[in-house]
Amino acid sequence: MTKITKMVSVLALTALASAPALADPDDNSLTINGEIEIVTETAAPAHMENVDTIYSGWRFRMAGTQVMEEDDFDNPGMIWVEKAAADWETVDGTRGESCQSCHGVVEESMKGVRAVYPKWNEAAGEVRTLEMQVNDCRHTRMGAEKWKYSGGDMTNMVALISSVSRGMPVNVAIDGPVQSTWEQGKELYYTRTGQLELSCANCHEDSYGMMIRADHLSQGQINGFPTYRLKNTKLNGVHARFKGCVRDTRAETFNPGSSEFVALELYVASRGNGLSVEGPSVRN
């Protein structure tokens, strides 16, 4: 038996003790506000060798949690999207401009943006996440202070930008100038780390659908990020979540904004190509 299979069967035995071992994602479908249809299940993109079907994390949550995402009023994350919408119109920085000064109405100018991030920035010669791009705009074009990468202001703004792309398919590029970063992210995804010697894949590829203690393991997709977690009752960004996950394997974790997490975010985002942008979502 390989190490992975052994670990998986240990997990399975554990779960069998008192709960269903295999709890496949349910069959529910998600429409937000009665109008935005969200694709929560689709064929896995070609670059994924070990997975046939990809599922949004929404499909692994209990009904009470799922329902909270179906209505923008019930979704507590949206209250911070509203805050960001106010920030969008607020003048900030030495140039006396707001996001709106250049970008106009967020629903129009930012539509489709979230779906293609992280992506290559030719002028800067690097892969950029949305947070990096927002800070570049603030610093360089507005003469405003950069926001803390995983702080509230930034996470709210990324949630706002995500929200106007909901329903659109995630579509991040994995070739061309981003390819080496993508490969780096892929390697990080499959590398075991930490005292628990777990890689992202051990749980989110080998064991999705199983119960880890009482949590229903998802595929670890990030199409729903930033997400409002019931656990900490606030919006959580991708890097903040990565940091927590890595820490939970009892490994030295990376920092939000680090090149490692940028690479990992690009790779993980590409594993969701085809699912709908769902953020801000509601998760456990």
């Binding site: 052994k6 069967s9 240990v10 997990l11 554990t14 779960a15 003790a17």
Partner: peptide, 20 residues
């Protein structure tokens, strides 16, 4: 099968921690 220390720990934790 032969369980490593890690696996035994995981089993033990899992069995008792599923519900408070």
């Amino acid at each position: 099968m032969n369980l490593t220390r890690r696996e035994t720990l995981a089993l033990g934790l899992g069995a008792t921690a599923l519900a408070l």
